[in-house]
Design a protein around this nucleic acid. Structure first.
Length: 824
RNA sequence: GCGAGAGUGGCGGAACUGGCAGACGCACUGGACUUAGGAUCCAGCGGGCAACCGUGGGGGUUCAACUCCCCCCUCUCGCACCA
């Protein structure tokens, strides 16, 4: 053992031992309890950043901890490798997305290995590998067969110059982020996954995920958005047609004075009378030119246009003018809103703007609002008025009664509505998984036969950045014979959303080499569900909901038999520096490479775990890193200096311990308990590390170290420090463990055992309060009775000075902790 | 606007079911060792001379509140105006 801690030597040595010995290879073993630990896999953007360091350090603590506890741990890593940045880089560098991606993967894999993360690299997956995405095509075909993948038209943000679809984040002030042209709404034929079929189960199962943070579940529930309401038919005047409306406020039905349709509503043009046609067309065009982002912005002005038609309120028989309104969304409900300006704020503003009638139907307990002078809608519950037979009821009761009434009259009825919409997966991009579909003029939409899979992404595309999807310009790819009739047909050139790959990669990790299908049941059955999933909070809804959806689909297709993929979820906070998220534009990025070169991976890991609990944001501090490095040096020195005394020492004999020895041993076992609980139950690695630091401080002040009688307890203390630190700083721990004569490696020797007998206190420190204020602390024997503790408290001189000449009213006693003397 | 979360020393953070506010670390101050120190070791470190005051602000419940309840303020994150 060297006198000085040299992280580079130590880390290289142990990383080689781990890799050569395949120490982290996971093999199914029914005789052992399995633990599947997973961190969200990275996008191969080029280099790892501090967020990765943090995420993977957190995961590695748990992986190593569980292995030391005897679990059969699966801890895999891979790459979410399809996506837009690769394509952009190809355009910029006149290169190919595959080249860029695989180079990045190679570099980043090296970086992760230098972190000493305990992955089973034999299970590595890159989603752009044919061996991965071809199975996804098979799953797609099965979903198509089941009606879970289907095609429909929908509106997208479209840049006319780039000839490409834009995500909301690529639209800046209504213009394309790249060429600055005005963005339009374009109707495109797109592929969708029918996630709404699983809306009910996805919602219900949120109750069965106790290991998920409550706030993530809340966000998912809100996203799915189940609401109970009514569908109501409003007959159109002078026609057979009716406008169907969804509402959760059927109690306000008698106050509906006009109708608002989404501009995309199928009846919009049909109901427009000739003399209003120009204005309506102009309005629809204007809404089409507005991108989704702007349209949903807070300060977006509510505007509309009158179609010239009327519908009839089915209960009041009032004529209701039919408007198109820019704030009504075609995707939610039925795309039509019965407008109740007195009791809905948006309708109120709209009515004021276009001078539409108001009718109050709910009033507060003690006043009667006057529509003429109202300044805002009354949206709370109240008493029904102007509502026929329902007058006088509480509005909450009227909801139920009106729903029943509508059902009886055949005008409408109760219904359940979900906010959740089907998942659009079509992307007009090259670097993604091709959708295995062929369009034949005769046979129509033809799925590629499974025997013809895979549809290989062709290499020979040109990345000019102009004219849309490069795939569509490869004629050998596009022009293929129809699998049914053999006539020339056209291949689908859309690729799948990259969220599809990340929706099932955790299943493929169970059987990454299986060559006969996407998944192999014996392995998925053994490993699934993921016992602990770790990743950023930004995935609280989309990725985590899609992965849950896919798991249910694959269950119903017979591939897996779990309902939920992730038993426990830990969402970690961002890495912050100088008050902002680390980013190139802010110039506050700390490069992991530089950190590891200067201090070693153990220090990088230790600091990122010690500076904050995982779920909170972490404030980066270069000085804090120094502190972590110093701590590892102190440990090194402690082991180096105590080794001569303890290497040959025997086991502790509790009966022959000195007072100081007993005290040190008590600290050791209390620390073992605390660290175990902090890791296992709370993921509070920062306090676990703090506890070990305290133990180290106790060992350093323990004297004498050089006597034979001290050796056993000193040995136990020092070895406990090493073992407790092993999940956090594995390299240095292995080295120190070996230097004390242990040859098998730390994980083989296991997690230290907590001995309750060794942690028992002889004496207790009891806090004495007078009227709730701390006055003194008294030490009593651990065996002292309640009366003895109270007497000891009252006998104290300082306490006496606060209690004399006052009557003791009451004494509160919290066993082993506190006495509060109430005087008056 | 809706939804979710957070406010504790100079800083990061502790305080787990209401029971010692500030563990642990950083920074800082003083000292030791020293040719030297950005190394190491020792000591101190919320404010106030003190009584006391202190967990964003104001009320409340309680013997006791960072913790529970009500009102307000500030900050962060997410979003698909959710009828």
């Amino acid at each position: 053992m060297e006198e000085k801690y040299n992280p580079q030597n130590v880390e290289e040595k142990w990383q080689r031992i781990w890799e050569d010995g395949k120490k982290f290879k996971a093999t199914e073993d029914k005789g052992r309890k399995k633990y599947y630990l997973l961190e969200m896999f990275p996008y191969p953007s080029g280099r790892i950043h501090m967020g990765h360091v943090r995420n993977y350090s957190i995961g590695d603590v748990l992986a190593r901890f569980k292995r030391m506890r005897g679990f059969n741990v699966l801890h895999p890593m891979g790459w979410d490798a399809f996506g837009m940045p690769a394509e952009n880089a190809a355009i910029q560098n006149k290169s190919h997305p595959a080249k860029w991606t695989y180079e990045n993967i190679a570099y980043m894999r090296g970086q992760l290995k230098k972190m000493g993360l305990s992955y089973d690299w034999d299970r590595e997956i890159a989603t752009c590998d044919l061996d991965y995405y071809k199975w996804e095509q098979q799953i797609f075909l099965q979903m198509f067969k089941e009606g879970l993948a289907y095609k429909k038209t929908s509106f997208v943000n479209w840049c006319p110059k780039c000839q490409t679809v834009l995500a909301n984040e690529q639209v800046e002030d209504g213009c394309c982020w790249r060429c600055d042209s005005g963005v339009e709404q374009k109707e495109l034929d797109q592929w969708f996954f029918r996630i709404t079929k699983y809306a009910e189960e996805l919602l219900e199962n949120t109750e069965k995920l106790p290991g998920w943070p409550e706030r993530v579940l809340t966000m998912q529930r809100n996203w799915i958005g189940k609401s109970y309401g009514c569908e109501i038919d409003f007959p159109v005047e002078g026609r057979q047609a009716a406008i169907k409306v969804f509402t959760t406020r059927q109690d306000t039905l008698y106050g509906a004075t006009f109708m608002s349709l989404a501009p995309e509503h199928p009846l919009a043009m049909e109901l427009t009378v000739d003399e209003n046609r120009d204005k309506v067309v102009e309005f629809i065009e204007k809404v089409k030119r507005t991108d989704k982002l702007t349209r949903t912005a807070e300060d977006f002005e509510k505007e509309g246009v009158f179609t010239g038609s009327y519908c009839i309120n089915p209960v009041t028989k009032r004529r209701m003018p039919v408007y198109l309104a820019n704030f009504v969304l075609t995707d939610y409900g039925t795309g039509a809103v019965m407008a109740v300006p007195t009791h809905d704020q948006r309708d109120f503003e709209f009515a004021r703007k276009y001078d539409l009638p108001l009718q109050v139907v709910i009033r507060p307990e003690d006043e009667s609002p006057d529509p003429a002078i109202m300044t805002e809608a009354f949206t709370s519950e109240g008493i029904m008025v102007n509502s026929g037979q329902f007058d006088g009821l509480k509005s909450s009761d009227a909801k139920e009664k009106i729903a029943d009434y509508l059902e009886k009259k055949g005008i409408g009825g109760k219904t359940v509505n979900f906010r959740l919409r089907d998942w659009g997966i079509s992307r007009q991009r090259y670097w993604g998984n091709p959708i295995p579909i062929i369009y034949c003029e005769v046979c129509g939409v033809v799925p590629v036969p499974e025997s013809d899979l895979p549809v290989v992404l062709p290499k020979d595309a040109i990345f000019s950045g102009e004219g849309g999807n490069p795939l569509a310009k490869i004629s050998s790819f596009v022009n293929v014979p129809c699998p049914l009739c053999g006539m020339m047909a056209r291949r689908e050139t859309d690729t799948m959303d990259t969220f599809v790959e990340s929706s099932w990669y955790f299943l493929r990790y169970c059987c990454p080499d299986f060559a006969a299908g996407p998944l192999h049941k014996p392995e998925t059955e053994y490993w699934m569900p993921v016992d602990q999933y770790i990743g950023g909070i930004e995935h609280a809804v989309l990725h985590l909901l899609y992965a849950r959806f896919f798991t249910k689909v694959l269950r119903d297709l017979g591939y897996v038999d779990v309902d939920e993929p992730f038993a426990n979820l830990l969402t970690q906070g961002m890495v912050i520096k100088d008050g902002a998220k680390m980013s190139k534009s802010k110039g506050n990025v700390v490069d992991p490479n530089a950190l590891i070169d200067a201090y070693g991976a153990d220090t990088a890991r230790l600091f990122s775990l010690f500076a904050a609990p995982p779920e909170k944001d972490l404030d980066w501090s270069d000085q804090g890193v120094d502190g972590s490095f110093r701590f590892l040096n102190r440990i090194w020195k402690l082991v180096f200096e105590s080794a001569p005394f303890i290497v040959d020492a025997g086991a502790v004999k509790p009966e022959s311990l000195t007072e100081d020895g007993k005290k040190l041993r008590r600290t050791v076992h209390k620390t073992i308990r605390k660290v175990t609980e902090d890791i296992e139950e709370r993921f509070h690695f920062n306090t676990a590390i703090a506890a070990v630091m305290e133990l180290v401080n106790s060992i350093n002040s323990f004297e004498p170290k050089n006597l034979p009688s001290s050796a056993p307890v000193l040995k136990e203390a020092v070895e406990s420090v090493i073992l407790l630190l092993a999940p956090f700083v594995p390299h240095v721990s292995e080295e120190l463990w070996e230097s004390l004569g242990h040859g098998k490696g730390i994980e083989a020797d296991g997690w230290p055992a907590y001995d309750p007998a060794a942690a028992i206190e002889d004496e207790l420190l009891v806090v004495v309060q007078v009227n709730g204020k701390l006055r003194v602390k008294v030490t009593v024997p651990a065996s002292a009775s309640e009366d003895e503790v109270k007497s000891a408290a009252l006998a104290d001189d300082k306490v006496k000075s606060f209690t004399e000449d006052k009557a003791v009213k009451k004494i509160i006693y919290v066993p082993g902790k506190l006495v509060n003397i109430v005087v008056g």
